[in-house]
């Protein structure tokens, strides 16, 4: 029997955002949205572990005790030692700047767990590129099945799944999991679930703000 690894939200997000065949980040994901979502997944995981709590105005530490996870503890320490009271959105923007570092560490953790495998390829016989195809794909299929079941039922979600729906919705990844007709049919259910959690609402707003900032700078580029 194949055992399924217990994955963190960040790991589940990354698994879904990697293309099954190439093992690279899906082209349809905007890098800035991915970086903010990775930041959100860390904050969400810390809140699931009871380390952080939030409201519309601020994110605050409930327990500074380490989780034992290097990436989460790095984020928790930074929040704990910050003198100013910052909102969830402030933290999302701050951690998003380290999005690449965090995602590298999360990929490494998935490779260590045997969920992903590292494949090195040579481009033009010189440059090495790395890809991370799934080892068996069982974990990703389990995540997709769980989310599809939740969306197609009227079940009240557990916090973990509600937060994952928020991540997939805000980044636009949900549209990769569903057909156009499924997305249209399930959009109100997706919005309902994503809206339940404050961190998901802040994530959605942060991605929208980043997008508007990019759009506002477009005329300056030309």
């Amino acid at each position: 029997m194949t055992s399924i690894n217990k994955l963190s939200l960040a790991e589940e997000l990354l698994l879904i955002t990697l293309d099954d065949e190439s093992g690279r980040l899906l082209d349809s994901i905007k890098p800035f949205a991915f970086e903010i979502a990775i930041a959100a997944s860390l904050i969400m995981e810390l809140s699931l572990k009871g380390k952080l709590d939030s409201d519309a105005e601020k994110l605050f530490v409930v327990s500074a005790d380490p989780t034992g996870n290097t990436i989460l503890d790095e984020a928790l320490t930074e929040i704990t030692t910050e003198k100013n009271s910052l909102s969830t959105s402030d933290w999302l923007n701050r951690f998003a700047r380290k999005g690449d570092d965090f995602s590298d560490q999360i990929i490494e953790s998935l490779v260590t767990k045997g969920v992903l495998q590292l494949v090195e390829k040579r481009l033009l016989w010189v440059l090495k590129t790395r890809a991370y195809p799934a080892t068996s794909g069982i974990e990703e299929r389990e995540v997709r099945a769980r989310i599809m079941h939740l969306l197609n039922s009227d079940e009240i979600p557990n916090p973990n799944d509600a937060l994952l729906v928020g991540l997939l919705s805000a980044t636009g990844i949900m549209s990769r999991l569903l057909s156009v007709s499924e997305l249209a049919r399930l959009q109100s259910r997706i919005d309902q679930i994503a809206n339940l959690e404050e961190i998901s609402r802040s994530l959605s707003a942060a991605i929208q703000e980043a997008w508007e900032l990019i759009i506002s700078q477009v005329p300056l580029i030309h």
């Binding site: 009871g50 709590d53 409201d55 557990n158």
Partner: peptide
């Protein structure tokens, strides 16, 4: 007088268990 995200999760968990 005040309820945070973790407080709201207790309400949601209660509703889920009852449902």
């Amino acid at each position: 007088t005040y309820i945070s995200s973790l407080g709201l999760r207790v309400l949601l968990k209660t509703a889920k268990a009852l449902k």
